[in-house]
């Protein structure tokens, strides 16, 4: 185990303490969890302010108008037209006023207009055309069964992707009543969708489990470091002891309430 300074150990302890605060929610909502929850809300908001300022406003606005005069609102800079989006952005703040809040519709409209104008051709290209293009490929008849067990590159797999996609789309197509053959197609479509949802669900569960394992490993590392130094051990005991003390207090409170409920009944 490599040596660690007291400062790094204290920061690591804080991280471990906050992880335990979050895990305490498994019991029930409690002050530890609420503290960590409100802490992360403030920190995350502050973090995004800083990141968007340094990585967003600075390269896209300040770097262009920075050679201008502050007292002239940078209008004498070499790129004065960059003040237009800044002015529009500032108009968003008219929402603070009840009387003038309607002015914020202008920058909002420009924002939505640009977004909509981008999304129509890009949405058609990426979400529709490219998906159809990738699905409707020439059939690999010479490799229909593929190499080995369940080959995803086989012709059969390509055919299943094509037919499955059409059937799944048909399931959402309500202009034709799902009767007879169409009912069979729709049922095949829902089957494909359910397999897809199941696979996605399993994948998500495993991602969460791996995150949990990683957090437990981190707590384990922190715990093992704690036994390398007397001062570290004392801090470890304080942190774990406080959680155990709160646990015992909650348990006693629960038992008392249970006794009172039984007596009342």
């Amino acid at each position: 185990m490599e040596s660690m300074t007291m400062e790094t150990y204290l920061w690591t302890t804080l991280g471990a303490f906050l992880s335990l605060c979050i895990f305490s929610f498994l019991y029930k909502d409690n002050p530890f969890y609420k503290f960590a929850e409100h802490l992360v809300a403030g920190l995350a908001a502050g973090y995004f302010v800083i990141i968007l300022w340094h990585n967003g406003l600075k390269p896209n606005l300040f770097d262009y108008v920075g050679d201008g005069n502050f007292y002239l609102l940078w209008l004498d800079s070499s790129h004065p037209w960059y003040m237009v989006p800044a002015f529009l952005g500032a108009l968003m703040w008219t929402r603070f006023s009840r009387k003038w809040s309607w002015v914020s519709r202008w920058p909002m409209a420009i924002y939505i207009g640009i977004g909509v104008g981008l999304s129509i051709p890009l949405g058609m290209r990426n979400a529709v055309n490219m998906q159809l293009f990738s699905t409707m490929r020439p059939m690999a008849w010479d490799n229909f069964l593929g190499n080995g067990y369940l080959d995803p590159t086989s012709g059969f797999s390509h055919l299943l992707i094509f037919v499955g996609m059409l059937a799944a789309l048909f399931y959402f197509f309500f202009s034709k009543e799902h009767k007879g053959v169409f009912n069979g197609v729709a049922k095949f479509g829902i089957g494909i969708l359910m397999i897809g949802f199941g696979a996605t669900f399993g994948f998500t569960v495993m991602a969460r489990i791996s995150l949990f394992i990683q957090r437990i490993q981190k707590l384990g590392e922190w715990s093992s470091i704690s036994w390398t130094d007397g001062a570290f051990t004392a801090i470890w005991l304080i942190v774990c002891g406080s959680f155990i003390a709160v646990g015992i207090y909650e348990f006693i409170k629960y038992m008392r309430n249970r006794g009172q409920t039984k007596a009342a009944a």
């Binding site: 979400a127 998906q131 369940l150 897809g196 996605t200």
Partner: peptide
């Protein structure tokens, strides 16, 4: 191998149908 096939074939078919639906809806 079965999981890999499930993720790359039926799951892909379902995802593509959903993405196409979302694409048409958003446009």
């Amino acid at each position: 191998k079965t999981a890999s096939w499930l993720l790359n074939v039926p799951n892909l078919a379902a995802k593509r149908a959903i993405v196409i639906g979302i694409g048409l809806g958003s446009v």
